[in-house]
Design a protein around this nucleic acid. Sequence first.
DNA 1: TACAATTTTCAGAAATTTCTGAAAGTTAAG
DNA 2: CTTAACTTTCAGAAATTTCTGAAAATTGTA
Lengths: 185, 185
Amino acid sequence: MKLTSQAQAFVLHFGEMGSRWGFNRTVGQMFALLTIHPEPLNADQLAQALKISRGNVSMGLKELQAWRLVELHHLPGDRKDYFTAAGSIWDLARTVFEERRKRELDPTLTLLRQLLLNEPQDEQDALAQEKMQEVYDLLELLDQFANTLSRLDQRDLLKLMRLGSGISKLLELKGKVKGGASKAK
Amino acid sequence: MKLTSQAQAFVLHFGEMGSRWGFNRTVGQMFALLTIHPEPLNADQLAQALKISRGNVSMGLKELQAWRLVELHHLPGDRKDYFTAAGSIWDLARTVFEERRKRELDPTLTLLRQLLLNEPQDEQDALAQEKMQEVYDLLELLDQFANTLSRLDQRDLLKLMRLGSGISKLLELKGKVKGGASKAK
DNA sequence: TACAATTTTCAGAAATTTCTGAAAGTTAAG
DNA sequence: CTTAACTTTCAGAAATTTCTGAAAATTGTA
């Protein structure tokens, strides 16, 4: 397990970016390495390639499993656990997207729902609640939209993402053509 | 500056979530407080309300300004700097979205562009580069899409986000009606 | 069951991030 | 220019997160 300088740079960068993407440096590195490495890797190989402790690898793999980003494999005649990235790049991106939606939106939605149940006690409270309601409505919409996007199949997702400013035109079209798709069929 | 228990809970939660959203606890708290508080607040008021040091407030405000999330105001006859959240909830969300796109995607795109310029030295390198190209293509597309979304005006954005599974139908419609919007006009 | 291979756990160490508060810097007003 | 009001800076302290490595737990095999 020697990394080419290419792979090295890729892996180190994903380590740096890790924290911005929701995991820590070594988890980011492990994910990157499993993503570009065509063969399954076991914990010792990961530890050796990334120069981190065996225990750290174990914790990192646990985390990557919680994110559903890795897959466990077994090689015949070998008792070690081997891991690969779970699916294609698109699959991985989708999974990261879904997990982040869960972690970044759901807790806040839950809290806001609770807070909005309370009767405001005074003027200041009422104003604050108005804002909270706005925040809630927006995050709720965003959450649903994110959900919709992650359910789209890859063809539609590609189509949508490639529309560019054509989106406006399509939305306009929707308004004009009454009945939407049924008419077009 | 006394916070109602509602506001308190909201502010503390945004503090906790802060790290997931790209800033630290106190920056998250400051942002939350400025968002629900109708009046501009000065640094001393923030420090007092959040029970943090004056220096920390100064650093936090600097960060919020870097994110373009706060606006500076001056009250007549008062030399202190007063801050409010920069715009409506939608404005704020859009800004956070844009800033995060910049911070989470751009550095990686830059690195991948560089790495992909190198000629692969061997088989392993070539395979790794294929993967990197896939990652690049996906992130590039995502980046452009995020850009498109943040340029949409609020009406279109709302329309789009409310489509739900209707998105597929609309995309299908696009395929059927040749010429897109121009036809519908 | 016994054992060796492997993985997981977790207390403490190390690294990193955040925070404080005093000092330095800036700015407006007289 | 001087002063007072205010803001920023930043070295070190505190808090938090991450990492290590040895011990405990688990698992497959004979």
